[in-house]
């Protein structure tokens, strides 16, 4: 028998946020130094900047177009970064055998999994934050240019009709431009986008925790994102003639795949619908709850996975 006295005297090993932080910061360094992430980010920034060159619409429509175009680009680039980045996390560790040296140390598998997840999420968030800043800048400069354009048009109209330019008229027009440009709903839309990307990363990690193939993980994740964004269409289309089979199918899909359309509020912003904070908070809560659920399932699979 092994003599108990021979064992070194150590404190009990407990779950450690510090270890998660160390693994997360290492993951951030790893991802930041990958070309694919930087290329995606640059691509996103170029798309956002290019939105300001569309000037054949009316001033109001220009802002609508910019918001629609930029929010769409941010969601797509963010989703690609989330899926590709997360899908690569575990296969890379397994292929390069770095996982052996980490999991053979006193590190719980959940700590490893969360460390990788949070590292990836930090990089995606930083990318989306950069795109948000550039989007804000593009909107601001567009506002300045539209104001200048409106003022010039007013001046021209006054000269043609030989009228006097009233300050109130100018001020009203400027306020109109500002209202079209500055929209608090954008803040809520971007907040929802962050939660959406968090959830997409958790879904991808969940698939990656049992999958042996990077391609399988990426394809299935994008399929889930697609179904998650379109399940409301099926619900609405089948609402009139719901056969029991379709009802069960829709319920199963709704149970397994989160309704990602809830996070897409770009259309509401375009039509000028006001998003209230209550609804936004509820949707965020739903997203965070689903994220936890997917992380728990990922942990369950990874805990028993043989590496």
């Amino acid at each position: 028998m092994t003599d108990e006295l021979s064992k070194p005297v150590l404190k009990p090993l407990v779950f450690s946020p510090a270890r998660i932080f160390i693994i997360a910061s290492n993951t951030v360094t790893e991802l930041v130094r990958q070309k694919v992430f930087n290329v995606l980010l640059v691509f996103g920034l170029v798309i956002i900047c290019s939105s300001s060159f569309w000037s054949e619409f009316s001033p109001e429509d220009q802002f609508k177009f910019m918001k629609d175009f930029c929010l769409g680009a941010m969601v797509v680039i963010g989703a690609v970064m989330s899926v590709v980045g997360t899908a690569m996390l575990l296969p890379q560790e397994l292929e390069q055998r770095t996982v052996y040296t980490i999991l053979s140390k006193p590190v719980y598998r959940i700590e490893f999994l969360l460390g990788k997840f949070f590292g990836q999420v930090c990089v995606v968030f930083a990318g989306v934050a950069m795109m948000t800043l550039v989007f804000g800048g593009v909107l601001y400069f567009k506002e300045l240019s539209v104001k200048k354009q409106v003022r010039a048009e007013l001046q021209r109209a006054v000269e043609v009709h030989n009228l006097k330019l009233e300050d109130k008229l100018v001020s009203d027009q400027m306020t109109k431009v500002e209202n079209a440009s500055r929209d608090m709903n954008l803040v809520k839309a971007i907040l929802l986008m962050f939660v959406n990307l968090l959830l997409i990363s958790a879904i991808t990690l969940c698939i990656s925790s049992f999958s042996n193939s990077l391609v399988f993980t990426v394809v299935i994740s994008f399929m889930i994102i697609m179904i998650g964004n379109m399940q409301h269409i099926a619900r609405e289309a089948w609402a009139g003639s719901m056969s029991p089979i379709k009802q069960v199918f829709i319920k199963v899909v709704a149970f397994v795949i989160p309704d990602l359309q809830k996070f897409n509020v770009a259309d509401d912003i375009i039509v000028g619908r006001v998003l209230d904070w209550g609804g936004t908070s509820l949707t965020c809560g739903y997203g965070l709850m689903m994220t936890l659920l997917f992380l728990a399932v990922a942990w369950m699979f990874f805990e028993f996975r043989e590496v």
């Binding site: 028998m1 108990e4 150590l10 090993l13 290492n26 055998r97 770095t98």
Partner: peptide
């Protein structure tokens, strides 16, 4: 050390060099 190997506690007594170690290339 008397602890079942699948328990993380047991890893505190071990140091491991894998075959053909790769590690993180960016470090």
């Amino acid at each position: 050390q008397g602890i079942p190997a699948h328990q993380v506690e047991a890893h505190r007594y071990l140091g491991f060099l894998p075959e053909n170690p790769y590690f993180y290339q960016f470090l």
